[in-house]
Design a protein around this nucleic acid. Structure first.
Lengths: 400, 400
DNA sequence: CCGGTTTGCTAAACCGGTTTTGTAACCAGC
DNA sequence: GCTGGTTACAAAACCGGTTTAGCAAACCGG
C-alpha cells in the first residue's frame, strides 16, 4: 500500500512542501542571496528531506550549456583506449578539463556513424583527434555552431587547432640516421583507416613522410616506393611490415617508423629475423610514448609533448566556448629527437647484415664502432628493469 | 543588414517553413510511417535546408533517457588515464557500450567533490570502479534512483557488482613462492587514498593481503607487521617501498606486490640495490597488465580479466537500466597465477643476498637451481624485444 | 505623509523537443 | 444515410527546470 513508484521529486514538489514558488526554490539553489536567509535555508532543508536534486538535463536545457566537452575520435573507443598515445593525450585533456570544471564525454562512431554519434552528443564543444580536415563530420560540427578544436589535422585557416612539427621531427630522425652512415632505409608507415587509400599528404603521416624524404633527398638519396610499407599503428603492425619487407628482399640498415608502437614491432621482428639492434639495424620511432624508454634497446624516437597537446587543445577550446578569445588560434608544438639505444652506426658492409642473420644467436664483438656508440645519450634508458642498458650489459659489459 | 546571430533552428522554424505542425516535424524524424510519405520527405528536405538537427538535450529531457553510461572514479581522471589497468578496463567498458549504442561519460571529482560531479552528470546509470562500498556517494546515487554497478568493491548484497577472486589469486601467488622455498617475505601494498588510514579489510587490497597471510599462515609463517609496506600504486611507489624496506634492514628473498606497477618498481629498485631477479630475490605482481610480459625479467603475476571486467560491468548495468533483469546480479571472475621469469627458488643461504649486493655488477653463475628454473613457464615472455628472455640470454644463455 | 527605492517573493514565459489527445476527411458497410 | 473505423495531421499538455516581468510590503529621505 506504499507509493508505487517513488517518483523523483521535482522542483514543484519542493515548492509545494515548503510553501513557496518554484522560483524561490530555484533561487535557493542558484542564487541564495536573492532570498531572505531563513527562507533559503528552510527551502534547502525541505529539499534535502525530500531527496531533491535539480535535474541536470533540465538544467542544461535552460542554461544552454552542458559544461561538458566532447573528445571525438574517428575510431572505436575500444581500440583507442588500448593505445598508449591516446592514453597520454586523454590525460592532458582530463587535466585541463578538470581544472576548468568541465566533464568529459567521449564521442566515437555510433553503429558506424560518427554523424549519428555527434547528433546525440550533449557537449559545449569538441576536441577532435586524428580527424582529417576533409572528413564530412567537420562541416557538420561547424554547421551546428559547435566550437571545434582539431588536433593533428592540418586545419583550415579559420579553424582553431593544435599541430606539432611532424616534418621537422621526421627530418631530424632521418638526418640522425644519415649522420650514422646509413644509406638503405625502410619506412614503416601507419596505414590510413580506409584500406587502399594513399597516405594523404596533408595528414600527420604525410607530413612525417615528407620530412623523411626531404632529409634523404638533401643527401641525394631517393627512397624507392617499395621501401615505404604501411600497416596498422600497433606492435603487430610493425612486425608485419618488417617481415613483409624482409620477404620482399629488402635489406635496410635503418628503419624509420611513423609510430613508436610500430617501431617496437619492428624491433621485435628484426630480432626474430636474427638481426641485432642497433649493430645490424637501426630503428627510430615517433611519438616517444612512455614505454619507449623501457624497450630493449631503449627506443630512439621523436618526442612530441602528447599530454601538453591534450591540455592545450582543451584550453583553446574553452577560450572559444567561453568567448574569451573570439579569434581562433593555431598552436604549433615542437618535436625533438631523443637518441637512445636503438640507433647506431651503419654496418660497414651490407654483407654484415646477412652474416648476422646466419649467425643467429652468437654475438660477435666489435661489429660496430664502440667509440661512436659510447657517445650516445643514454638518457633514462637504464631507468627501469625492462632495459638492460647501463654498465654490465648491452655492449660494453662483460657479455659482449 | 543580415540576420545578426544565425540562431540554431528549432523545430518550430521547420514546422513554419514546411507549413506543418511541430508534431509533424517530430514524426518525420522519429516515426516517419505515421505521416504520408511525401509529407515526411518534404519536411525532411526543409529541415535539411535549414540545417536543423533535433536538440539532443531537449530530446533527453522528454525521453527520460540519455543513452549514456557514466564511469565513476574516486580519483582525478588525469591520474587515472595514465594507469594501464584503467586503460584496459575502459577498453572493455567502451566495447560493450559501443555495441549497445551507449555513449561514455567519465565522472571524477569536480573541484574535489564527487557528489557535485554526480549531480551534474547526465547518465542513465553508473559503473563505479575502485569506489569503496562505504563511500558516501554510493548512498547518494542509490537515493537518486540511478542504476549502479560497483566494480572491485565488496558490494552490498542487494547491489549488482563485479568482483574477482582477489584472495584466491593472492593465495596462489604466496603458495608459489612458498613452493620455491622462500620464507622471508615483503608485502608491497597499495596505500589507501586517504593517508594514514589502515588497509580496509573489505577492500581489494585487504582481500589480497588476506590471501597472502592465509597461505603463509598455513605454513606456519607469520608475517611481521613491519614487513607490510605501502605506497602509491605506481612504479615509483614500488621503488620507494623496496628502498625503504631495505633501509629498514629487511632482507626479503621474495616480494608480494599488490599491483604490477609496484612490482615493476620493486624489480627496478632491487636491481639498483645490487640484487639479481630472480636469483637473489623473487617478485610477484598482481593484475597482469599488458606490459608485465615485457619487463626484464618478465613478471610473474596474478592474472585477472581486466577487459572482461569492464565489459561485464556494462552489460550488467544495461540489464538493470533496460529492466531486462530486475534482480541485481553479482558476478565473480576468476584469477590465475601466471608464472614468468621474476620468481625463482629461494637463495640457499640468507647470506647470499648480502653477498650479491656487495658484488654489485659481477654476475656469478650457479647461484640458484638451474633445474628448477628450467621448469618454469616462459609463456610469451620472449615475445617482445623488451625482454631478454629466450635462448641466449637471461640464465641459460652464454652470458651466465 | 508622500513619492521613490529596495526587498522578497510569485506568476508566467521560456528552453526545445515528445507524446497524448483531438479532429477533419475519407471510406466501407449495412 | 448513418455508423464506425482509418488516415493524416494539429492543438495542447508535458518533461523539469531557469529567467523575466511584476507586484506588494517595507524602508527611507525630505
Amino acid at each position: 500500500m506504499e507509493e508505487r513508484t517513488p517518483r523523483r521529486p521535482r522542483i514543484a514538489d519542493v515548492a509545494r512542501e515548503a510553501g513557496v514558488s518554484k522560483t524561490a526554490v530555484s533561487f535557493a539553489f542558484n542564487s541564495p542571496d536573492r532570498l531572505a536567509p531563513e527562507t533559503a535555508s528552510r527551502i534547502l532543508v525541505v529539499a534535502e528531506s525530500l531527496g531533491y536534486r535539480p535535474h541536470p538535463v533540465a538544467r542544461m536545457l535552460t542554461q544552454r550549456s552542458t559544461h561538458t566537452i566532447g573528445v571525438l575520435t574517428p575510431q572505436a573507443l575500444s581500440v583507442i583506449f588500448s593505445n598508449p598515445f591516446f592514453g597520454a593525450f586523454s590525460e592532458g585533456v582530463a587535466l585541463a578539463a578538470e581544472q576548468e570544471g568541465y566533464a568529459l564525454h567521449f564521442i566515437s562512431p555510433l553503429h558506424g556513424s560518427l554523424a549519428r554519434a555527434m547528433g546525440r552528443a550533449t557537449v559545449d564543444g569538441v576536441v577532435a583527434i586524428g580527424l582529417s580536415a576533409t572528413h564530412p563530420e567537420v562541416e557538420q560540427i561547424r554547421a551546428a555552431g559547435l566550437p571545434l578544436v582539431m588536433v593533428d589535422s592540418s586545419a583550415l585557416p579559420d579553424q582553431p587547432g593544435i599541430e606539432i612539427d611532424d616534418a621537422g621531427g621526421a627530418r631530424a630522425a632521418a638526418e640522425h640516421l644519415l649522420g650514422l652512415g646509413h644509406t638503405t632505409f625502410l619506412v614503416a608507415g601507419v596505414e590510413p583507416p580506409t584500406p587502399g587509400a594513399q597516405l594523404e599528404p596533408d595528414g600527420v603521416m604525410g607530413r612525417r613522410l615528407g620530412g623523411y624524404l626531404g632529409a634523404l633527398g638533401a643527401r641525394g638519396i631517393e627512397l624507392p616506393a617499395h621501401a615505404i610499407c604501411v600497416g596498422p599503428a600497433s606492435i603487430e603492425g610493425g612486425m608485419a611490415v618488417m617481415r613483409r619487407a624482409w620477404e620482399d628482399g629488402l635489406r635496410p640498415t635503418a628503419v624509420l617508423a611513423m609510430s613508436d608502437a610500430m617501431a617496437i614491432g619492428v624491433l621485435r621482428a628484426a630480432r626474430e629475423l636474427g638481426m641485432r639492434v642497433p649493430e645490424d639495424i637501426s630503428v627510430v620511432g615517433f611519438d616517444d610514448i612512455d614505454i619507449s624508454q623501457h624497450t630493449n634497446p631503449p627506443l630512439t624516437t621523436v618526442h612530441q609533448p602528447i599530454r601538453q597537446k591534450g591540455e592545450s587543445a582543451v584550453r583553446l577550446l574553452l577560450s572559444v566556448i567561453e568567448r574569451r578569445d573570439p579569434r581562433p588560434e593555431q598552436l604549433r608544438l615542437e618535436t625533438r629527437l631523443i637518441i637512445r639505444g636503438s640507433t647506431g652506426p651503419a654496418p660497414r658492409r651490407r654483407q654484415e647484415v646477412v652474416e648476422a642473420r646466419n649467425q643467429a644467436i652468437g654475438r660477435h664483438a666489435g661489429a660496430s664502432h664502440p667509440s661512436a656508440r659510447r657517445k650516445r645519450t643514454r638518457g633514462t634508458s637504464d631507468a627501469i628493469p625492462a632495459t638492460d642498458a647501463g654498465p654490465g650489459r648491452t655492449s660494453d659489459g662483460p657479455d659482449t
